[in-house]
Nucleic acid binder design. Structure first.
Lengths: 114, 114
DNA sequence: GATAGTAGTTTCCCAAAGGAAAGCGATTAC
DNA sequence: GTAATCGCTTTCCTTTGGGAAACTACTATC
């Protein structure tokens, strides 16, 4: 059963994690994706949701996430134009990562307080 | 029935993820933990396993992980002393995070190549 | 005595991340 | 006309992350 792990598997696990972190690394990328997974939002709504982020960083990270196809930028021809960011279908693949991180963060906070 | 998500849950998910990243952020912490989860290792063995890391960064990150009780440093009174690092029991709680990241990294690589 | 290994430390340096604050063009409300 | 909102951009600055290389104290081996 799955208790045996070969050296090759360990190595590829390591490479996978390093590759994932290469794309997801940083303080804000995953929080932004999570905020948009919860609901599509406009620029200033994300600013309010993800506390502490500056407009410069938010703009920069949204571009990065767009390039990695995790976020879609929708422009609506209202007056004035409204711009709504949403999590892409591909970002669904991050749900396990986000759930695991959220669970761990909650548990770790309890551990530190206690 | 878990399809409904309240605003409060979204917000606390966000806080949890931000807290988790506060501890786990950076290029090397999770790779090091994963390497030690696979098997306890000595300093130079970790260096070989986690490719590209420099001794300075490894020493620094091991200290950080020790302080967060994710890694245990064992000193054996051999001559010369041997120092073996191992994943702590608490680091078991990171298994879901590591598995999710490894899976995502593998999938993302396939997506980029294809 | 020379060489090698172990477990790092030290120094120096560069690049990326990130924060603070101001500004900007367009539009709408008062 | 004045002020406010939206979605950013620009500038400036500090902090952190991280790489390269040399070096150290100790021990063992040749």
């Amino acid at each position: 059963m799955a208790t045996e792990v070969t050296k090759a598997e360990c190595t590829s696990n390591l490479k996978n994690v390093i590759d994932a972190l290469y794309v997801l690394n940083g303080k804000w990328k995953l929080p932004i994706v999570l905020s948009l997974v919860n609901a599509p939002k406009r620029f200033n709504e994300i600013m309010k949701d993800v506390e502490g982020i500056s407009p410069k960083i938010l703009a920069q990270e949204l571009k990065h996430l767009e390039q990695n196809e995790l976020v879609v930028r929708n422009v609506y021809a209202t007056t004035p134009v409204s711009i709504v960011y949403e999590a892409s279908p591909y970002s669904e693949t991050l749900k396990d990562v986000l759930r695991a991180l959220s669970d761990w963060g909650a548990g770790h906070r309890k551990k530190i307080i206690g």
